[in-house]
Design a protein around this nucleic acid. Sequence first.
DNA 1: GGCAACCAGATTGTTAACGATTTGCGCGCC
DNA 2: GGCGCGCAAATCGTTAACAATCTGGTTGCC
Lengths: 239, 239
Amino acid sequence: MTADGGTMPRPADPTDAVAPVESAAGEKVGDVVAAVRDGIVKGRFAPGQRLPEAELVTLFGASRGAVRSALAQLENEGVVLRERNRGARVREVSLAEAVEITEARSVVEGLCAAKAAARAGADDRARLHVLRDELHTAVDGADVVAYSRINQQVHRAIQEIARHSTAAQVLDRLRIQSVRYHYTVALLPGRPTVGLREHTAIIDAVCAGDPDAAEQTMRAHLLSVVESLHRLDAQQYRW
Amino acid sequence: MTADGGTMPRPADPTDAVAPVESAAGEKVGDVVAAVRDGIVKGRFAPGQRLPEAELVTLFGASRGAVRSALAQLENEGVVLRERNRGARVREVSLAEAVEITEARSVVEGLCAAKAAARAGADDRARLHVLRDELHTAVDGADVVAYSRINQQVHRAIQEIARHSTAAQVLDRLRIQSVRYHYTVALLPGRPTVGLREHTAIIDAVCAGDPDAAEQTMRAHLLSVVESLHRLDAQQYRW
DNA sequence: GGCAACCAGATTGTTAACGATTTGCGCGCC
DNA sequence: GGCGCGCAAATCGTTAACAATCTGGTTGCC
């Protein structure tokens, strides 16, 4: 076993830059939570990597109590795993879990799409059309990173248009847990083309004010992501 | 304003008995969380009531740190609201929020029902049939409290049969937030009869192994609960 | 009599030190 | 040489005291 005890973290992405986080007075725990979560999402902290309290204290300059509260919250959010007297580790989400998460997302985002279709105003439609065009150019230019980013923006836009705070909370939580798979799926050959077609259908249904069609297309889209995850599994792809 | 500062708690249910919670070694925070959550669900702590740390310390015999962690977790679960330097209060969920929560439940429980229909074995079907019969006798006997209890057991059984841990987590969280409305809906005139019919349809669909029918009936059932909530609103019913 | 500043009590936030548990390593025994 | 035991370092959990903040009532002034 290696010195740090856990799964060997692979080299961090070149796109990290640490973000020292100015501990604004009275928001320490929130800052630490955001910083650690961001580190997990961005790949600075690898799945299975240990997160000793002392290390986070020196990293973020926060007190141990703050770090402790932050870890408790992150555990509650499902991105960190803690064992008594054994410390905290970045939780490893299996492919099976990612499938479950995406299935759950499919129904909740379906609800959001339906609500968005019912509530979308002219400005909302304009916003979605902009995103649709941006997605189109990204796919045309084979810009996978841009595709992935705008992809997420589409989902977030529909979520915001739906104005359903409960669904929004649930979705934020679910997305954080499976974020690391999003890029992977986007990298599958042909995925951007399929995704573009599906997103276009969703946007059209929402803008047409058809809740049923919006829900169905959104669900179909995320179930196709589930299919892609299974394909990943078939390829023995592992983190 | 009264001495305790918050909304006046109505007299607690006769069914509380405090549950002093034997602080088993190494599970203090979990115990406090469970105790406070239970107190909120059972009505010992009313919505809006203040929850001073010192009071919880004396109530449960836990250290202040444990109480503090527990409150943080309860805040994260959405049943407690905390303001900086102003302490914690039991969160008041509005009827609009209860509607949102039930809408979210409808789609996620729909997913569970579909999965349950696909995965139910003979023992699962037997379990559901027992619950169906118990629900029937409860409604025949006009036993509203039994109806409400078995009602929840049906939902929980389907959730367990679905074996979808992500959906289960989401649902546990959502149910806790809106628990106090469950009894109220069950008390609406004619509600047990309607609920019985709907639950029977759900159980039949799950036992028939028809995922689509199971999902549709479950969604229809919870949307009918949403309708009941709106009727509550029309009656100017307030907590 | 009304209003504003102020002071005391209560409550929460923070920090530091102490105690308990686990883990890795070295030593001795078989 | 392999295996089990025990010690020491590291890490987490808990407690207690201190500091900062808010609330409510009181007092003095206009």
